[in-house]
């Protein structure tokens, strides 16, 4: 029992990270039809930004953690918005080229991170409470999992409220459904593009700082390895569906943990098999409408 509880909560913690990446991917894809390969780099950069803050402050305090989360999110948002504004926008409606630009950006930035921070992992320490455990139903759960889950839930809630109650949110929801009709109502939908990139970048940057605590280190590959699972999550959840991304994140990560524990470390393969199964049964994903 305690093992199961531990696996579920750890899985949800990992799922939280997937969601922080997948939510942005999904929003960006839903509105713009762009698959953003550079999203992993937003995450990595957020993690390194948080790391640099932590180095300059007292690494083990809560204030430092908070500051690094904020800085990670802000850096992620700014870099993502700049990416949209300077690179993606020039290729309006040319989806393949837009994907290619993000591919180039991913390659170039990972190499740049290699050059700046080195290819080896840089270890990260958080507040002491992070490495302690809390007992739930007999399971000793590392505390950082709770922070991850709460952060992801808050981000989900924040995005939902934003979509529901702001004008940009309205434009984004409408644009996901029918982008050209939004412009035919006299709205410059490109501003919403920058906004979704910024939101996605902020979530990814935040996810980067949290991931560095979950894994205990930052490396230039951090974002890329999470990105692949986030891709799988977005396909399983249904491209462009935020709720689908949330459900699939939890599902995929928990399944992965269980397979790793009970099936001899086959978590990654199980996830790919799940993807294959979903494609066979329901190619549009759990909650997707367009394939």
């Amino acid at each position: 029992m305690s093992t199961i509880v531990l696996l579920i909560i750890t899985g949800l913690g990992l799922g939280a990270l997937y969601f922080l990446v997948a939510s942005g991917l999904s929003l960006i894809y839903g509105l713009m039809g762009v698959l953003n390969f550079a999203h992993g780099s937003f995450l990595t950069l957020g993690a390194f930004a948080g790391l640099e803050i932590a180095r300059r402050m007292d690494g083990a305090s809560w204030i430092t953690l908070f500051a690094s989360l904020v800085v990670g999110a802000v850096v992620g948002a700014v870099v993502a918005a700049a990416t949209e504004f300077f690179l993606i926008r020039r290729l309006y409606n040319r989806h393949i080229e837009q994907v290619l630009v993000t591919v180039g950006l991913a390659l170039a930035t990972v190499a740049l991170f290699d050059g700046i921070w080195g290819t080896d992992p840089t270890y990260v320490t958080g507040p002491a409470w992070f490495s302690e455990t809390t007992e739930i139903l007999g399971a000793k759960v590392p505390n950082d999992r709770f922070v991850l889950i709460i952060a992801a839930v808050l981000v989900l809630l924040g995005i939902v409220l934003f979509l529901k109650f702001t004008r940009f949110g309205l434009i984004i929801r409408a644009g996901v459904e029918n982008r050209s009709m939004v412009t035919a109502l006299g709205i410059d939908v490109r501003k919403a593009f920058t906004v979704v990139f910024a939101i996605g970048g902020a979530a990814a940057g935040l996810g980067g700082v949290l991931a560095s605590h979950y894994f205990g280190y930052v490396s230039p590959q951090l974002g890329g390895s999470l990105l692949i699972f986030a891709f799988i999550v977005t396909v399983i959840g249904g491209l462009g569906s935020l709720a689908g991304a949330a459900i699939a994140s939890a599902l995929v990560a928990v399944l992965q943990q269980f397979a790793n524990y009970y099936l001899g470390g086959t978590g990654d393969l199980t996830v790919v098999l799940l993807l294959a199964a979903v494609l066979l049964i329901r190619p549009t994903g759990l909650l997707g409408s367009k394939a």
């Binding site: 309205l170 929801r173 409408a174 029918n178 709205i187």
Partner: peptide
Amino acid sequence: FASLSVAENMRL
């Protein structure tokens, strides 16, 4: 916009 309310369609 099918997923938006009538009022939201108008507001847009």
